[in-house]
């Protein structure tokens, strides 16, 4: 049932991503209306529980979805299999999640984010 679980995990992560992508794009369009500045973005994200949950979940769903998809590609196009294949997929998952969550943390809780929020935030 391993393949079945991976299949369902990829579909469910897609289901999670769909509204988040729309939200992300909508905010992007809204945000660039008056030009884009780091301070403006950080002013919105710094210390915001809502945006942490939004992008934290987004990054998790991306990591799950992409790792499973790349696992299939590695299997069919690179001929990987067994332990190597699963280790590669896990590494991709861990890398994407670490990068995603690190970025979410940086725009929310880091010193720079706090300073930006205090200085030029909306």
């Amino acid at each position: 049932m391993g393949e079945m679980r991976l299949y369902m995990a990829q579909r469910l992560s897609a289901l999670v991503m769909a509204p988040l992508v729309l939200g992300h794009v909508a905010v992007m369009i809204y945000a660039v209306q008056g030009g884009l500045s780091a301070a403006e973005i950080l002013g919105r994200t710094a210390g915001s529980v809502g945006w942490v949950l939004f992008y934290g979940l987004f990054a998790l769903a991306v990591a799950v979805h992409a790792a499973i998809g790349l696992r299939t590609i590695l299997r069919e196009w690179a001929g990987l299999g067994g332990l190597v294949l699963n280790a590669a997929a896990l590494a991709i998952f861990a890398l994407l999640l670490a990068m995603g969550w690190r970025a979410v943390w940086a725009v929310t809780f880091s010193a720079g984010a706090a300073a930006a929020a205090a200085g030029g935030g909306a």
């Binding site: 049932m1 393949e3 079945m4």
Partner: peptide, 12 residues
């Protein structure tokens, strides 16, 4: 269902 959901099954 067990047979077609294993490795190399319908989800491939």
């Amino acid at each position: 269902l067990e047979a077609v959901t294993g490795d190399g099954g319908c989800h491939s």
